[in-house]
Design a protein around this nucleic acid. Structure first.
Length: 928
RNA sequence: GCUCGAGUGGUGGAAUUGGUAGACACGUUGGACUUAAAAUCCAAUGACCAUUGCGGUCGUGCGGGUUCAAGUCCCGCCUCGAGUACCA
């Protein structure tokens, strides 16, 4: 029978499940280790070979850590809310819960087949009321908190109210939307409605009219990270800008902490960099510009206050709130036409027409507060309402966008910075502005001659003294829009009294998702929940009809895994103090700007409340690369049903067609299978090369339409889960994108069978002996332990696999069947190929799972040699090798090399100029 | 445009601190075993030149440089991939 993976794998999967081998419990005697995978959205298509890549790596690491004596928490669950199930519900009327349940079952079966060591007792599903109770609970906490910039943390709204009652709004340093001055007396006289309105400005979860990414096709708003190139990420539908009342989370209050936290965590530089970009910190100044003949002023943010003498005009966003006041009567029509045109442009148009310069003069002038010059105020859509103050001072000499604008509308350009080592230029001859931050100031009054850096500080000091500005920091990060006009998501624990939102009492949680007759918006455009009957509180107040977005449930699931069955609190203090944070998080980098930043924010908030003990949730994070598809092509001669083999295709006028990769082996097409594949190919004819039909190939995205989807089920049936696991690791570095190519899987399968044969003969008899191991065998074993161990620690799983292969090749060569060698090797391999190793372990006479065995430790003594084979180079080129004792002194090595027979040929007629000897490494002779 | 990452045989990839480039595997070719196939085993396999044998030259995207020694370090460029996009 030999290696019967099918039987072995189902046997051990059953054993692990029945005996709860991987159940994790708090054990203060052991160090904890928390390994987390990004939980999947259970889609209808099931898993393809790309999904398990990260899961396999993290599973190997989890098993490795258990062997090393750690108490490992390795859970799995489902990100169960999502648009596809809801779209399906709209089309078919099937409740999303039903679809989701079905898909989860399929996922679970597929995951189980691969032999993961998850503790399934800790499974969470975001759509389970027992789970989303705590998502809603966290929302209530956000609703009832404000951000105190003095203590630099979130605090209870009660203490803000207390301050208002005592001292009014004076001296409060908070993150807010709008600020209003009032005394404690005024506060007390406000109506409840007025008070609530003021508090809304401070809450960390707040309701506000917001310009949102509205996607009419999906009938919902989308977060910035759900929009790509002006189209929805899911479905590719157009997205518009629309003003809507929405819930937002005040993530911006945490901008600086989110930025600073990146320095303390072990994530890839690329990922940290994209978070830094997303947060987008820039240092600069806020400066007020007076408007001529007007009481209002324009506040601008600039990173280059040094260039203020070069500010020759101002530009405000078309949406700017002072627009109406700035338009002069004679300019009214033109400006209003422009503003309405700009506001109605879709995101997509705006993006594709970036280079087009548009704008109009408002008719008003501002006064440059430093130079005293009058400068015209324009409006243009290159200034965004959402960033800074929505108004800029334009410095065409030193900002390329302002430069393009000035050239287009013939506005004056002044040079105020001269690059170091250069002379002032003639701006009318410039092709572009000088945007560099190095140089000396000219044409700039009191800062003339200063270097840029110095000038920036001087201008900030000046505006601060004059009381017309201050040095400040701006962030690109926006508050997160938290409302979705969808059905399949968490209901908000919010009701409305006289139009004002209030949080439900915690005792009312979970607020369960109600039944609806249809999963569509109502006729008058309200979200689907508005269709639910009696969607009110007991007292009859209407409940919120929006639902929460996808990232709500995924923002803190790692915390719930610590104590998933707790129904009195989110998770116990004890559980959190023990498991603390995620030691290793593995997942795709598509979550860089979404989930990973929201999670960090959510965790910091819970940290401020004193609920979690670590400020950063994910200590180390690895992004597994994507597995790309490898498509095969056949070449049909135009207008015929004749197909020509790959290398002959140039001789004909052909059309390349995707062919199902299951009909192709090593790029050779199975002709009969191809004819039976689709009716249209039934009578296909072929032009062969060397009697074969060779297909072309290309690496591209894995997708059904390209017929290149590899589903793990087929491979497991053919080769087994252990082979699949080892092969996915062998494919290449974990973090790198790579094409999936089934061709190499045979090699891994051969390796496992070869490993099996070290233990069993052809009749399945155990042939392991208790003989004393030879030095050579010990050396093979111990160098493998050393290599595999160090490779796992640096997450280099692919090189680990090749170390096993070398080891098994060497032991096979040595005909080694010795227990003292093979037992440690079995433990060593078990994280990668757990089923086969369990089976062998049992056959070796052990009653307990191999997962409890402790990891072998390599002994350097077995690796030491008394001689080293030196590569000898002449002028850097390796010419021959010579074996010499490891402790031979340099001088003797030189002598031995120079006298060596092989050396004579290279020394003949030449002078030795230099000899470099690196002990136990290399010898290099410089001759000439 | 900006930021980050990557370019090594026919293919996936290895080379951890500058020290034998191409480990391991696939594929291909030849051979053994077999009635045959599968499985297994053995050998060859970067390119070019030479071939009777010994060999030799070139070679890690391109061009320079540092060094006894460069896939690895430095400078300049090219190509591909990812992210981002008027962020003042």
């Amino acid at each position: 029978m030999g290696y019967d993976f099918g039987e072995i794998e189902s046997k051990w999967q059953k054993y692990w499940a029945e005996n709860k081998v991987f159940k994790a419990e708090i054990d203060t005697e052991k160090p904890k280790y928390y390994v987390l995978d990004m939980f999947p959205y259970p889609s209808g298509a099931g898993l393809h070979v790309g999904h398990p890549l990260g899961y396999i790596a993290s599973d190997i690491y989890s098993r490795y850590k258990r062997h090393k004596g750690f108490n490992v928490l390795h859970p799995m669950g489902y990100d169960a809310y999502g648009l596809p199930a809801e779209q399906y519900a709209i089309q078919t009327g099937t409740h999303p819960e039903e679809t989701t349940e079905k898909n989860i079952k399929r996922y679970r079966k597929q995951l189980d087949q691969i032999g993961f060591s998850f503790d399934w007792d800790r499974e969470v599903r975001t759509s389970d009321p027992k789970y989303y109770k705590w998502t809603q609970w966290t929302f209530i906490q956000l609703f009832n908190s404000w951000y105190n910039k003095d203590t630099n943390k979130a605090e209870s709204l009660d203490n803000l109210v207390e301050k208002f009652e005592k001292t009014g709004s004076k001296g409060i340093n908070a993150a807010y939307n709008e600020h209003e001055d009032f005394t404690s007396e005024q506060w007390k006289k406000f109506t409840e409605y007025e008070q609530q309105n003021i508090l809304m400005n401070y809450r960390l979860a707040y309701l506000k009219d917001t310009v949102v990414n509205w996607c009419p096709a999906l009938g919902t708003v989308l977060a910035n990270d759900e929009v790509k190139d002006g189209l929805s990420e899911r479905g590719g539908h157009p997205v518009e800008r629309k003003l809507m009342k929405q819930w937002l989370l005040r993530i911006t209050a945490y901008s600086q902490r989110l930025l600073d936290g990146l320095d303390d965590i072990d994530w890839s530089e690329a990922l940290k960099e994209s978070q830094r970009n997303w947060i987008g910190r820039s240092e600069g100044a806020s400066i007020d510009f007076k408007i001529k003949n007007h009481n209002e002023k324009l506040e601008v943010f600039t990173t280059r206050p040094d260039t203020i003498f070069g500010a020759t005009f101002m530009v405000i966003a078309p949406e700017h709130e002072l627009m109406d006041q700035l338009i002069t009567p004679e300019r009214k029509q033109e400006v209003e036409e422009y503003v309405s045109w700009a506001k109605n442009r879709s995101e997509r148009e705006r993006m594709t027409e970036v280079k087009k310069v548009t704008g109009v003069f408002t008719g008003s002038y501002a006064i440059n507060p430093i130079s005293g010059q009058d400068i015209p105020i324009w409006t243009a859509d290159y200034v965004l309402a959402g960033y800074g103050t929505g108004a800029i001072m334009a410095v065409p000499g030193h900002d390329s966008r302002d430069f393009a604008f000035a050239r287009h509308f013939e506005l004056p350009i002044i040079q105020v910075v001269v690059a170091n080592g250069e002379e002032p230029g003639n701006v009318s001859e410039w092709d572009d502005s000088y945007d560099g931050k190095e140089g000396a100031m000219i044409n700039s009054g009191f800062i003339n001659g200063m270097q840029v850096k110095q000038a920036i500080a001087a201008v900030i000091k000046e505006v601060e003294e004059k009381g017309i500005g201050y040095g400040t920091i701006n962030y690109r990060l926006r508050d997160a829009i938290f409302s979705r006009q969808r059905y399949w998501g968490e209901p908000f624990p919010i009701y409305y009294k006289d139009g004002m939102p209030y949080a439900l009492d915690e005792s009312e949680l979970p607020l369960k998702l109600p039944a609806v007759d249809k999963y569509l918006p109502t006729e008058d455009g309200k979200p689907p929940l508005a269709r639910a009957e009696n969607w009110t509180t007991k007292e009859g107040y209407p409940l919120e009809t929006n639902t929460m977005p996808g990232f709500a449930g995924s923002s803190a699931y790692y915390l719930r895994y610590m104590d998933p069955l707790n129904d009195t609190e989110y998770f116990s203090k004890e559980a959190n103090n023990y498991w603390k944070d995620v030691d290793l998080y593995v997942g795709g980098d598509e979550h860089a700007a979404g989930h990973l930043i929201y999670s960090r924010f959510w965790n910091k908030f819970l940290f401020d409340l004193g609920l979690v003990c670590e400020e950063e949730p994910f200590k180390k994070l690895i992004n597994q690369g994507k597995i790309q598809g490898r498509s095969n092509f056949v070449y049909r001669i135009q207008g015929t049903n004749k197909f020509v083999s790959h290398s002959l295709r140039k001789e004909y006028d052909t059309q390349a067609l995707h062919v199902d990769i299951n009909l192709v082996h090593n790029d050779v097409l199975d002709l009969e299978a191809f004819k039976n594949w689709l009716p249209e190919y039934k009578d296909a004819e072929f032009i062969l090369e060397d009697g074969k039909y060779v297909c072309g190939y290309e690496v591209e995205k894995m997708s059904k339409s390209k017929h290149n989807v590899q589903n793990p089920d087929n491979l497991i049936e053919k080769y087994g889960a252990d082979t699949l696991r080892v092969y996915e690791m062998f494919l290449g570095p974990l973090e790198q994108d790579k094409p999936w190519d089934t061709n190499g899987i045979e090699g891994v399968f051969r390796f496992l069978r070869k490993f099996w044969r070290l233990f069993f003969d052809e009749d399945d008899n155990l042939i392991v002996t208790d003989d004393k191991p030879a030095d050579e065998e010990l050396k093979t074993l111990h160098k493998t332990i050393k290599k595999v161990d160090s490779d796992i620690l640096r997450f280099s799983f692919n090189t680990g696999v090749s170390a096993y292969m070398i080891c098994v090749n060497e032991l096979s060569e040595l005909k080694c069947h010795k227990r003292s060698i093979l037992e440690p090797l079995t433990i060593l391999l078990s994280p990668y190929a757990p089923h086969i190793c369990e089976e062998i372990w049992q056959k070796l006479g052990y009653a307990e799972s191999i997962s409890t065995a402790s990891y072998p430790i390599h002994n350097e003594d077995y690796l030491s040699e008394n001689s080293f084979e030196y590569p000898v180079s002449f002028n850097g080129k390796m010419r021959f090798k010579i074996k010499l004792p490891v402790d031979m002194p340099k001088a003797e090595i030189e002598k031995a090399v120079v006298e060596a027979e092989e050396a004579q040929k290279w020394l003949d007629g030449k002078t030795i100029r230099k000899i470099i000897v690196v002990p136990n490494r290399i010898v290099n002779l410089v001759v000439g």
